[in-house]
Design a binder for these strands. Structure first.
Length: 786
DNA sequence: CTGCTAGTGTTTTTT
DNA sequence: ACACTAGCAG
């Protein structure tokens, strides 16, 4: 029996061996959070306190779920496949498939990803003749998802004004459309599952009796609905083992509610609150910086990281004039790091927003340094892959209008916008799907549509006995997609991706344990399994089935669980694939701070540390926005193991305009003794002439004279804006940065910087012909050009 | 039906 | 700056 508890520190040990009672583990960055979670599960099983079937472990990402399963099976010789370890959405999908009738869904219900959802909403609004100017589809999408994540159906939403009433009305129409088409969006998976349990006492009792141990990772990221779902599953008797870090809560913008941690503590009367504060990642100075920064936040649960490693190196700070200079310096440092033996993949360049990567990428390319950027299109989001999936979806569920609209004329088969409009009208008239409305369309349009219907019908018939990979290959071929991309000049990559989709289907079949020949659209009984593991309450023997609630469908006998095809389509929606280019390559890592959460690197650059950028200006308008930015900075700092660089630039190109920024307030919140300024530290007031505070925060950076200003929110229009440093100078010197000026000798130019005050005031001017020059305003005769 | 142009948006992101 | 989309001309 492996000693699971060896090498755990006292807090980790205590957390792993807690009794089965509500527990909150406050796990600081780099404190071995995942290890505790996994060891806890293994320990429960090893000591007979739980069986794999009575455990439920929830994560936010598939990556985290996979890591949990692989590390768990490394600790204990168990098959993690049947265990309820997964993402909120994945687990809800599983439950809804098993009980789709109770949930009011067809067996083949399909999942709309965010893009599918938006096109479904656009289609709906078009049909209802809604003015997209007045009610933008994107806003409606946000409104709907937000409502669902609060657990609100249309009838529950408080419609305070006509505008909101319209949104509620559209929300209702959207839900009806989804229901008719047999599709669910992401938040619907959770809400539907929540309602399934809430409205079905025997089913709820069944799952409550089953999941004696509920473990939640990244608890600070849960939203209201996810927390409500967890409470429902826990019931009165079960406990939740929640692991999280309020200081790393950086997803409020997508509905995460840190307050859930406090609520959980009170509502579950948590007696076991354990803080993991021993950090195994970073050197001392880095942790000191993180600790002191985050201490500026209020309403924390409270935590201070400590390390046994020494102070290590100081935190290096660099100021540059421009963003390209900043990039140049980063590249030089990277070269130096590489030459002293640091692996490229151990170096990360972090930024607040994606737009910042461009300059850095350019500079890296020119220097010939391999890098990789996180983010971007993922495999199942590629258009050719989505096209192929749409055909597969239509085979399984002809009512899926989103899939129908996507491929009815792709590859082109003479079905134009007019025909599709006619068809949509007919579908609305008969309240049926577009596929079902085809017979009602007359004329030429009708016959070409009938041709498409025949194609889908033929595909459905001929794939009846095919395995999943065969089905995918057949569809890619028969749909005409393969031929289309074959003939397309730039279609080679897309063609390869379609082949990759066939491979993905084969991999899926093998990973899920289906027989390779299992027909894609039949309900399989997995070979080797005497029954589905889902409802097997194993008491020692994992193959012993004890259905502890009579009348609850056993997925093994119930023809209502997922077919390989439905499973694959779910998989494609729920797991869009890797979004990192050429994984595994020895390359410098470029990513946003958000994307860096959970990762660690020997050397980390945090770039663009400027007011307006980091903290981001938009955060000033949001409640607790600044605190979230600070947590983000905290996450960024704690990624570094040995060496941390902080940099900022005086000017930066953004959205085609040069912006002049002052350094981030975060510099003032760090312990100065840990910082080593590589460029002279200029006191905040000095550059701009006597101001010591960080003015300028919250300014509307995007004001553009050539474009009409849209609605920017109440906060920006009603609250008086603080004075902006450059404007402050403008009042004293009569000039401002960005201003066009004329000089008798150098001609026309633009002011790029202002410095000093009174008789010492200087301006840096970029002349069209003579380059950049510093001019003393008292001497040079600069004229403003209007 | 395809290809161009004008217009627009532009923090962070998973499912 | 740049990428994406909607609308329209060919």
């Amino acid at each position: 029996m492996p000693d699971l508890l060896a090498n755990l520190n006292p807090e980790q040990h205590a957390a792993v061996t807690l009794p089965n009672e509500p527990a909150l583990i406050l796990a600081g960055a780099g404190s071995g959070k995942t290890r505790v979670l996994i060891t806890r599960i293994a320990w429960l099983i090893q000591h007979g306190l739980a069986s794999p079937a009575t455990l439920l472990a929830v994560t936010f990402t598939n990556k985290a779920a996979r890591e949990m399963m692989s590390r768990l099976s490394a600790l204990l010789p168990i098959d993690t496949r049947g265990m309820w370890i997964g993402t909120f959405h994945g687990l809800c999908n599983r439950m809804l498939r098993a009980h789709h009738r109770d949930a009011g869904l067809p067996a083949t219900f399909q999942i709309l990803d965010t893009a599918d959802q938006l096109s479904a909403i656009k289609r709906l609004m078009k049909g209802l003749n809604i003015d997209d100017e007045k009610y933008p589809a994107k806003n409606l999408q946000y409104f709907i998802n937000n409502a669902k994540e609060q657990g609100l159906r249309p009838k529950d939403v408080d419609a305070t004004d006509n505008f909101n009433r319209k949104f509620v009305e559209l929300y209702e129409a959207y839900d009806q459309q989804c229901q008719r088409e047999g599709v669910v969006d992401f938040p619907e998976l959770l809400l539907r599952c929540y309602e399934l349990l809430a409205h079905n006492p025997p089913l709820r009792a069944h799952y409550q009796a089953r999941f004696r141990h509920i473990l939640v990772d990244e608890f600070q990221d849960t939203n209201k609905l996810q927390y409500a779902w967890l409470k429902l599953l826990a019931g009165q008797t079960n406990s939740i083992f929640a692991v999280g870090d309020d200081d790393q809560s950086i997803y409020a913008f997508r509905g995460a509610n840190v307050g859930n941690m406090r609520d959980f503590e009170h509502e579950f009367k948590v007696r076991h609150l354990i803080k993991l504060e021993q950090n195994y990642r970073s050197h001392g100075h880095i942790l000191d910086a993180a600790n002191q920064l985050i201490a500026n936040n209020s309403r924390r649960l409270g935590k201070n990281l400590r390390t046994d490693a020494g102070h290590g190196e100081p935190v290096r700070v660099y100021e540059s004039a421009t963003d390209s200079q900043e990039a140049g310096w980063i590249v030089e440092e990277i070269k130096a790091l590489i030459s002293t033996g640091t692996s490229r993949s151990e170096i990360a360049v972090l930024y607040r927003s994606n737009a910042q990567s461009r300059t850095i990428e350019h500079t890296l390319v020119n220097a010939g340094i391999a890098y990789r950027v996180y983010g971007g299109l993922r495999f199942f989001e590629r258009q050719e892959v989505k096209h192929a999936l749409a055909y597969l979806r239509l085979i399984d569920n002809p009512n899926d209008d989103t899939a129908f609209a996507r491929v009815v004329n792709f590859p082109t088969r003479g079905i134009g916008a007019r025909s599709i409009e006619q068809l949509a009208d007919a579908a609305r008239l008969y309240n049926c799907s577009m596929a079902a409305a085809i017979p009602y369309v007359a004329g030429k349009a009708g016959s070409s549509l009938a041709g498409f219907a025949n194609l889908i019908g033929k595909m459905r018939a001929e794939t009846q006995q095919m395995s999943l990979p065969e089905t995918v290959e057949y569809v890619v071929r028969t749909s005409g997609l393969a031929e289309f991309y074959q003939n397309e000049r730039e279609g080679q990559d897309r063609l390869e991706n379609l082949q990759e989709l066939v491979n993905a289907a084969a991999a899926f079949v093998s990973e899920e344990g289906y027989g390779m020949d299992t027909p894609a659209r039949s309900i399989p009984l997995r070979p080797g399994a005497t029954a589905a593991p889902e409802l097997a309450v194993a008491t020692g023997d994992p193959n012993t089935v004890v259905l502890d609630a009579p009348g609850i469908a056993d997925p093994a006998q119930n023809p209502d669980t997922m077919t390989p095809l439905a499973g694959f389509l779910s998989h494609a929606s729920l797991e869009a694939g890797d979004n990192q280019a050429q994984a595994g390559q020895e390359a410098v890592q470029l990513m946003t701070v958000h994307a860096a959460k959970g990762l660690e690197f020997t050397a980390v650059f945090i770039t663009g540390l400027e007011e307006g950028l980091f903290p981001h200006e938009n955060s000033a308008m949001e409640a607790d926005g600044l605190e979230e930015e600070r947590r983000l900075m905290y996450v960024a700092i704690t990624r570094a193991k040995e060496r941390l660089y902080l940099s900022f630039a005086q000017s930066r190109m953004l959205h085609g305009q040069t912006r002049y920024n002052i350094r981030s307030r975060f510099f003032d919140e760090l312990p100065q003794e840990t910082l080593k300024w590589l460029t002279p530290k200029v006191e905040a007031g000095a550059r701009w002439g006597g101001r010591s505070d960080n003015a300028g925060y919250g300014r509307d950076w995007f004001a553009r004279p050539d474009r009409q200003q849209g609605y920017t929110g109440a906060a920006s229009s009603s609250a008086p804006l603080p004075a902006f440093a450059n404007e402050q100078r403008a009042a004293e010197t009569g000039f401002r940065v960005g201003q066009q000026v004329f000089h008798t000798k150098f001609g026309e130019g633009t002011i790029t910087a202002l410095e000093g005050g009174g008789t010492d005031a200087k301006a840096q001017v970029k002349f069209k012909r003579h380059g950049e020059k510093w001019l003393a305003l008292a001497v040079a005769k600069l004229q403003a050009v209007e």
